[in-house]
Design a protein around this nucleic acid. Structure first.
Length: 341
DNA sequence: AACATAGGCAACCGCCATTAT
DNA sequence: TATAATGGCGGTTGCCTATGT
């Protein structure tokens, strides 16, 4: 038997065993097995016997650990993988996703069917980052769009003007071009959001109604949810308490400071800023299912300079409180239009 | 033509999260 | 509750090829 078939034999043995007896290989987490209804837990004598017979019949195979086999399968042998060069659309999408996600390769890969995180990571590190470095260190000094970058990457002029790994790496980090200095473009200043004080909205908010929750016998507890959508088509809500949601990446790179100016901030800074802004009126808590929910929200849509390209952000900050109020109460929503106040 | 170096890519490393025991 | 085993994933390395000088 050739080495190749010996290898495949072991691989399929391992995969087969995993399908039959997943728990044996996963003392740790095994969510995928749960999803497909496979067995977990202690091995039975019959299962042990089956395994022993299989080993005796097929041998222990290659001297590869399970982790190595898994990697080989995930990145190369899996049947649903795309082959060949990245398309222009994929290039563009990777650039855009990296702008939003940073180096979260698995997250980026989840948006590109048939491409693995490793493939995208290699592609980025070996090609895109260098190309973008050249792009941004060009002589024009003009703000370019990610589409332009993708087109540039696809021009396949790889060997023109070398950029070493280390040089390109300086401009590539988990925030995306942290060291890149954007052109000196004025940043749009946004007006401050409505501030609930003593359960009332700031009266300076134009013609918005005053919000007075009913039946509140103590200070309401607010959760902060921030929803963002942009030109890339991403949108959604995110609670600052919920680290699991994917939407947080927006706020890890862009946020509004206390004076209403959009600037680079990390999540802790954002949370601190919001806590200061709503000091005394804001507490974080878990949802109480025994109480009814009310929402306050405002939104703003502005075009800003993000440092990478021009992005129109729709930012919505919602305050969700819980109070024992009557059925049918109106949910009050303030839509914060451009120029208002 | 020879050498040095960048490019491309697969695989490994190490840390962290998760879960069974 | 502590520990061990394992998966997930980003960072990095190593090796071969391609290209520039």
């Amino acid at each position: 038997m050739s080495y190749f078939f010996l290898y495949l034999s072991l691989l399929y043995f391992i995969l087969g065993m995993r399908l039959c007896f997943p728990a044996s290989f996963e003392m740790g987490r095994a969510p995928c097995c749960e999803k497909v209804g496979l067995k977990r837990g202690r091995w039975t004598a019959e299962e042990d016997d089956t395994l022993i017979k299989y080993i005796k019949a097929n041998g222990e195979g290659l001297l590869r650990c399970g982790k190595s086999c898994r990697l080989r399968w995930i990145n190369y042998l899996r049947g649903d993988l795309k082959r060949g060069n990245m398309t222009l659309e994929e290039d563009e999408l990777i650039v855009k996703l990296h702008k939003s996600f940073g180096n979260r390769w698995s997250m980026i890969a989840s948006h590109l069917p048939g491409r693995t995180d490793n493939e995208i990571k290699n592609y980025w590190n070996s090609r895109l980052s260098r190309q973008i470095y050249r792009f941004f260190t060009g002589k024009t000094g003009e703000t370019q769009s990610s589409t332009d970058v993708a087109i540039l990457v696809n021009q396949k002029t790889q060997r023109v003007g070398r950029v070493s790994r280390n040089v390109a790496k300086k401009y590539n980090n988990d925030k995306g071009f942290k060291n890149y200095k954007p052109p000196d473009v004025p940043v749009t200043k946004l007006s401050s959001p409505p501030i609930p004080v003593n359960n009332q909205v700031d009266p300076n908010i134009g013609d918005c109604s005053t919000f007075v929750p009913k039946n509140v016998d103590e200070s309401p507890v607010y959760d902060i949810n921030i929803g963002v959508s942009d030109e890339f088509g991403f949108s959604g809500l995110r609670s600052l308490d919920d680290e699991a949601m994917d939407i947080g990446y927006f706020l890890e790179s862009e946020a509004m400071d206390s004076s209403g100016v959009l600037s680079i901030r990390d999540e802790d800074q954002i949370e601190q800023m919001l806590a200061e802004t709503y000091a005394g009126n804001l507490k974080y808590s878990e949802r109480n299912v025994d109480e009814r929910e009310y929402d306050l929200s405002f939104s703003s849509s502005k075009t800003i300079c993000s440092g990478f390209n021009d992005v129109e952000w729709d930012m919505e900050v919602g305050f969700t409180g819980f109070e024992p109020c009557d059925e049918g109460d109106d949910m009050l929503v303030w839509l914060w239009e451009d120029g208002n106040p």
